[in-house]
Design a protein around this nucleic acid. Structure first.
Lengths: 297, 297
DNA sequence: CACGATCTCTGACTAAGGTCAGCGATCGTG
DNA sequence: CACGATCGCTGACCTTAGTCAGAGATCGTG
């Protein structure tokens, strides 16, 4: 345990020192680091001042001064937000876009220089390690968002889910027109559709549908391949159960195909028990049920 | 390739942001961060001001002011270096030692808090990833140090080497009194003993011995188990070849047991060719030779 | 259209981090 | 023992990052 801490500390020191030196060398423009960060955050699409303040957690006066500085350097222009005269929009000028691109390539070069002294084989290994560590760290910030099942990202997630079922089921899986036909079940008031997100990325999805008063069904639960092994499934299921309870359910059911062995294991460890078929889903082989603890509220 | 850079950048952002927040929360004492870092660097053994300046890359005036601050807080005492009246030594007071320990536990807590939200299984995985990444990053700073073969660390390395041979050779390996008896071969003027270091850690060792004018032998080459797979062996061999050339050799020989397959592969890829036995080492099965390119100097 | 809330900006101020020139004591060497 | 080099210290100065209190314009609501 204490050697674990030593490992983390050793890595932190080695890594931040190296990255720190590189960043000082490469990101050092004529302006302050704060101004550069702000410029980067404004980005190609521009932004509203208040939004920037929230994202960067800056004092309103300080932010204003940084903007004046960027404006004086001809990198941004500000204008009153047409939708609300109190707000102001900031946009990059042509010079600002060029500077943004410069910061971008410099950030890339920092990463490049970190890998450079390792040689290609060891660099590739480090990248793999960091990719995995990155997911472990970022998965902590998993959050759930209720969206309409016809939402672009929801549809994309469902299509990925169906494609995977088709690949894994004996005899394949044909969704037919369920994608659009079932959508209304996953809308308020009788249901919900949830996206699991890490940052902007979609890490999974799932739906809840009220079958009878007090009985809800969890459906369409899927974790994106890259996010498996990061406890996303368990947290997603727990969230869907909370949604079910909010919809008034005290019992949650779900069905599954026997090909989805990891899913079955998860259901069992999370308190689901086998029950007889409660529907005639031709792809289902197992049916599960869990009685929820009464809502503490 | 560009996705490699994106991976590194994503990890850097996720990691430094998280560690940064934790460090702000935990390392924030009543004094400035710079003063805390200085206190930590002084350590239990104290230090000379000039050395601290070099280690922390601080301006002499700035460092002096930080020391005055620590002194005013009763954490350090300064005194003239008895060896050189221009220099000054800094030592921690009892209160300074206590504060140092406090910083140490706080650093541990930062590492702890980084792992905490992951849960034990994923935390263990992250630690393993970081341990490997740490070695990859730190191995870049591999350096070589010529030491006396009777040096404590040299002897420790040789004992580890012999123990490993004993384990790997059919019928074992008995060093007898070679450890002390052969030592003089690895001392100037006829030889050298080299330690490979990463930070303070010993990552390997090796020796060079002049057999005849123009012919040197590489012996006792060993890479510490934890540092295998980090290109230490190749760089160590290259260094020993440079040492051989410095000793006036144009041909480098070495012998090896057939049990050391990785070593044999390395010798072959680095230009060593099989030759007939040039000695009667009872443990040797293969003898190699490499003709060095003439020294460019 | 009055009024409180919201949004951005300006001015005044602070702490941390850091640079630079020069001073005085000490050291090593001729 | 004179002289230049070295070492640490002080004073003066600077930038960055950030806080806080209002001012002025605009918005939403009654």
């Amino acid at each position: 345990m204490s050697s674990d801490l030593a490992t983390v500390r050793s890595f932190t020191r080695a890594f931040t020192r190296r990255v720190g030196v590189l960043e000082d060398r490469f990101l050092d423009r004529d302006r302050s680091l704060g101004a550069s960060r702000l410029l980067w955050e404004i980005g190609h699409d521009g932004a509203v001042v208040g939004e920037l303040r929230a994202r960067l957690v800056l004092d309103s006066g300080y932010l204003s001064r940084l903007l004046r500085q960027l404006e004086a350097d001809g990198l941004v222009t500000t204008s009153v937000d047409p939708a609300d005269g109190r707000r102001r929009r900031v946009e990059l000028t042509a010079a600002g876009v060029a500077e943004w691109a410069e910061l971008e390539t410099r950030s890339d070069r920092v990463a490049e220089q970190l890998l450079a002294p390792l040689g290609s084989r060891r660099a590739a290994e480090l990248v793999e390690l960091l990719a995995r560590a990155d997911r472990l760290l970022r998965a902590v910030d998993l959050r759930f968002e209720t969206v309409d099942p016809a939402d672009v990202e929801a549809v994309a997630a469902l299509e990925a889910y169906f494609a995977e079922l088709d690949e894994r089921f004996d005899g394949g899986f044909d969704p037919g027109d369920t994608l659009t036909a079932d959508a209304h079940h996953y809308r308020a008031p009788e249901g919900r559709f949830v996206l699991a997100r890490v940052g902007e990325e979609v890490a999974g999805c799932g739906a809840v549908q009220l079958l009878d008063p007090g009985v809800a069904e969890v459906k369409r639960m899927w974790v994106a391949p890259g996010w498996r092994g990061h406890a996303v499934g368990g947290r997603l299921l727990a969230h869907l159960e909370r949604v079910a309870v909010e919809l008034g359910a005290s019992t949650v059911r779900l069905d599954t195909n026997s090909a989805l062995t990891e899913a079955i294991t998860m259901y069992e460890t999370r308190g689901y028990v086998d029950i007889p078929a409660y529907n005639d889903n031709p792809f289902a082989r197992r049916w599960f049920e869990k009685v929820m603890a009464p809502d503490p509220t």
